[in-house]
Design a protein around this nucleic acid. Sequence first.
RNA 1: GCCUGGAUGGCGGAACUGGUAGACGCAAGGGACUUAAAAUCCCUCGGUCGAAAGGCUGUGCGGGUUCGAUUCCCGCUCCAGGCACCA
Length: 863
Amino acid sequence: MLSDTYNPLEIEEKWQKSWDSDGVFQVHEDREKPKYYLLEMFPYPSGKIHMGHVRNYTIGDVVARYKRMRGFNVLHPMGWDAFGMPAENAAIQNNTHPAAWTYENIDSMRKQLKRLGFSYDWDRELATCTPEYYRWEQWLFIRMFEKGMVYRKESFVNFCDPCQTVLANEQVEDGACWRCGREVRQKKLWQWYFRITDYAQDLLDYCDRLPGWPEKVTTMQKNWIGKSTGARIRFGIEGREDGIDVFTTRPDTVCGASFVCLAPEHPLVTALAAGNTQAPEVEAFLGKMARQERTAKAIETAEKEGVFTGSYAINPVSGGSVPIYAGNFVLMEYGTGAVMGVPAHDQRDFDFAARYGLPRPVVVQPAGEKLDEATMQEAWTGPGTLVNSESFSGMDNVAAQTAIADWLQAKNAGEKAERFRLRDWGISRQRYWGTPIPMIHCDTCGIVPVPEEDLPVRLPEDAGLLANGGSPLGSLASFYEVTCPKCGKKARRDTDTMDTFVESSWYFLRYCSPKEERAIFNREAVAYWMPVDQYIGGVEHAVMHLLYSRYFTRVLEAEGLVDFKEPFTNLLTQGMVCKETTTCKEHGFLYPEEVDFSKDTPICTKCGNPVSIGRVEKMSKSKRNVVDPTLLLDRYGADTTRLFCLFAAPPERDLEWSDTGVEGSFRFLNRVWRLALRYQDVARKAVAYNGELAALSGGDRDVFRKTHQTIKKVAEDVDRFHFNTAISAVMELVNAVFAAGEKGEDIQHAGVARHLIESICLMLSPVVPHFTQEIWAALGGEGALPEKAWPRWREDALQEDSILVVVQVNGKLRDRVTLPADADEESIKAAALAAEGAVRFMEGKEVKKVIVVKGKLVNIVVG
RNA sequence: GCCUGGAUGGCGGAACUGGUAGACGCAAGGGACUUAAAAUCCCUCGGUCGAAAGGCUGUGCGGGUUCGAUUCCCGCUCCAGGCACCA
């Protein structure tokens, strides 16, 4: 029996316990059933779940439960992306240990997720900060090192001298340290890199073989990899034996080069300036560059500037001499770290030449136009015929690209070349809370990996964090003092940790056998479960995380550990949950509960100062524009919270949070509850009707038809992840039943009533599992609802008796006619031409054309 | 700056392959029930003209293709995400 009122908190706890003790969501490899691996991006354990998590995991849970009802053996795991900077920041702020802080957060977040009733197999839970997890990451790192997939090189980091610490890009605000506010400089450090560029071509090729991914994501990845074809051209240097290799996509314009520009870090810059009058200026420029932020955004928005090195380069085709500059718009990591400047045919070069008064010779003349160096307002980047280009003059510029590259190759001064924008993946972090890099530096033997039997290299738990945010590992002798595994002499352990993207690049494999102690994963388990059938997570991960995971899978494939290259067959990128930010002058970003919105101007509850309302942005802990779902859980329960998240917007769309509307979802559940109450007595004794529609009449017929139509619609909508419209469809069904009752056409047939309530329970069970289970049980339904089969619909029960045809005249709606469902085209046309509303607009005009869309619309064209 | 998306009533959204724009829900207004309130139920609800019937207009802006465009094409504007050390 159902209680008179819907009491979510009681019901939810009861069924969660019941499912838990029955092990309903535990899964094992089962060859009898088709497998389905559903994965949601695991969370960083920040302490509290936020609406973004609730949304992401609700979407995943609905799909997991739906697939299970459709007969799949569903793997649906959850865990924690537990290493990362916030733990260190919190540790400094609250004087706790990152580990203690992290594990506490995991405990409280696990509780919250459990309250939401997600169908996870909690036996598979993992946390990346445990030695059981990261030892396999270290093991893999060493294998990659042995295969040459890992190397070291010098590169720059943001460094704050007063704090003596490396800063993340996020920790640099307008070129200054977030902690002390002083200017940040670029410091060179030796760092570890993964050779992801080895796979650039393969990662690119497979972007077109991922039909289950949104095209926008593969497009973004293609652009990120950024393949370009062109040529490497070697310019000579006056007075020197060596030369400068430039990469260009426009070898056809080589004779139009009026300068060569090097990246500031290019090794030749100081060498070329040495001993000439430009030396001091070059030095000043490099000093300035060392203070400039190195994010792509900063580089590309900064004004193009450069400095003459005092040396000249020799054009290998024209033999001309051009000045060599160093410039802030040339990236050392891309191409060769040097470009040739062709102002007439490249806008960036045009701007640079304008600033430094460099000539801009025209070498490509477009058809029907005459470019003139003196009067050009912008670069010409289109096609044309080569001029002033030695023996290549008169040639079509596209043909010349190959011709010039071939010519250069013959002269040993260049060749055709491909370049990728993608750079190798730098993974060294000068931080504490991460996976220790399992390497030892020995003065005698060089770099030696930690022997496998010594893994894991554990993070020392007694390390006290430094107030400035620096890693304690570098000054913790008990950690770094080791003996060399090769020669036994004193050596130093690597004190850097890995980028946390490394952990998330293979966790999906570990879920298949999370407790495996002898290997990174159990190969049979991985062979059964992988690849992930459906991966769900925020769009913000469209490039980096997903690309790194694809790369890791390739590395493992090359190692022979897995036999597939792509980890995720289908991808759903959900939109972000956004909210406006609130800032107080004194206290910075404020949580919504720290703002008093009751006055005309919002007030900071800490100091009483007015609060300024900022842009609507992705909810994030650092911006504090987060909504705490526990408030909703306490008030409405998990089912209403889940229902609202799905109903508010389709998954791929961003969701601007508003508190209103949750009430409506709660109201809907209460409405369904009352519907169940109304029919429970008759339905409990009945068997669900499963006969022909034709055998029913009146309200029974309408309700039965509407129920089947709804079953069909909901299945179709869930299949394409349109949960909001699926829910709307059930709302319409419920409304129709109530409306029929109002009209005196209430359900008479007990079997139809039972079929209705059962169908609603089954259809809504992935969304509101506790609620539907309670009603199901009240009808006398046995067992766990999540284990039942998805309802089927009868084709004969979908048939309407009549159709509504819209009548347009010249594309404007003029009338509607109702016709028998089997009306043929001729009778539809005749009815439309006779429709009163249409006739008025046809008077005195000639009917030129009649377009009939069968069963839907007639458009009469008159003139 | 570059790459990728998005924009529809007061609000969230719907319209699946070009075919009734605004389903479903929120908010608002009116009514019923109630001593009253809550809950519930019913009605109205893009703008504009009109007493009504009905007309005109309307999917960020400007063009185009089409019998017909929220949907396709071209050119913009604004917003969001990513840009390699936030995750």
